[in-house]
């Protein structure tokens, strides 16, 4: 009985949490829609600053990771492909696994580590320091002021970063292809393009937009619900990272199943 109760309670808590995220996202969307009709000078500036932090700042580390993962994918699949005498398929395996799955996922994980945690820490320490109260007494809504620019930045930057990660992942695979599978760079890239359909890239990008929403909503929600005291900021940051990773993978599963069953190739 107790087990059922615990599991049931956890499920309800989970649903409530997802509901909170949806409300937060809705409020940001509302702010984004009404913004052009109000005079808000700093809004554009803040979005750009966030976009630089989320997007441009992530490029070096994301490039390296995506490149390595592409290379690892090539190495791993080459074992089996070589046995089958189909080593030439390595470009295809890398291209499809990177664009459909690994590119968006690696990008999301890097952004969670760099920005999701930073969102929670920034908003959380503002909460602890009464800065959120100060915003409210100035008639500035913390969600509109702090969360909306982050959301807009993330929704634009995640697909951009994902395209970049896809590209570097393919290049990583190409180093193996050129070194050990008899490709030239030209033939490898040609084989890659041959094997990719638009939908591989597009489904990956759709997922990355949703990941951007999830990462921002979770990071901000954790920041906004920070308790009193400095150590609570650390706690919020940790749970922002853990919850975002879990939710990103869960959302990934949902979308991938949807694409598989609802729109088969």
């Amino acid at each position: 009985m107790a087990v059922i109760e615990t599991v049931g309670q956890a499920a309800i808590d989970g649903l409530v949490y997802v509901g909170d995220l949806a409300i937060l996202t809705g409020r940001c969307a509302h702010a984004a829609v009404t913004a052009p009709f109000q005079w808000r000078r700093l809004r554009g500036e803040r979005i750009i600053r966030q976009a630089m932090a989320v997007g441009v700042g992530a490029i070096p580390v994301l490039s390296l990771i995506a490149f390595f993962i592409g290379e690892i994918m090539a190495l791993q699949s080459a074992y089996e492909l070589r046995k089958l005498g189909a080593i030439a398929l390595v470009a295809r395996v890398v291209a499809i696994s990177i664009t459909r799955e690994l590119g968006p996922l690696i990008t999301a994980i890097v952004v969670i580590g760099r920005s999701g945690s930073a969102f929670a820490a920034e908003i959380g320490s503002m909460k602890v320091n009464s800065e959120l109260d100060a915003l409210e007494t100035m008639a500035l809504d913390p969600v509109e002021f702090l969360v909306a620019p982050k959301l807009m930045a993330a929704v634009v930057m995640l697909p951009c970063l994902t395209i970049w990660a896809d590209f570097l992942g393919v290049l990583g695979g190409a180093t193996f292809g050129v070194a050990a599978a008899g490709f030239t760079l030209g033939t490898y890239l040609h084989a890659t393009l041959e094997s990719l359909a638009y939908r591989d890239i597009v489904t990956g990008l759709i997922k990355s937009v949703v990941f951007g929403v999830v990462i921002t909503a979770v990071g901000s929600q954790e920041g906004l619900s920070t308790g009193l005291g400095a150590e609570q900021v650390g706690r919020s940051t940790t749970s922002a990272v853990v919850k975002s990773i879990f939710l990103v993978v869960a959302v990934d599963l949902v979308f991938t199943s949807f694409f598989y069953f609802a729109a088969p190739r």
């Binding site: 700093l42 100060a134 007494t137 100035m138 500035l140």
Partner: peptide
């Protein structure tokens, strides 16, 4: 609230902004 001015117990200045930006924020917005 635009008619309120509040000085919080610990100041609650925005740590990521300079003093000038802090003071300017309400007018700018």
């Amino acid at each position: 609230r635009k008619k309120f001015g509040v000085s919080f117990q610990d100041g609650a200045l925005f740590g990521s902004m300079t003093i000038g930006e802090n003071v300017a924020l309400p007018v700018r917005e």
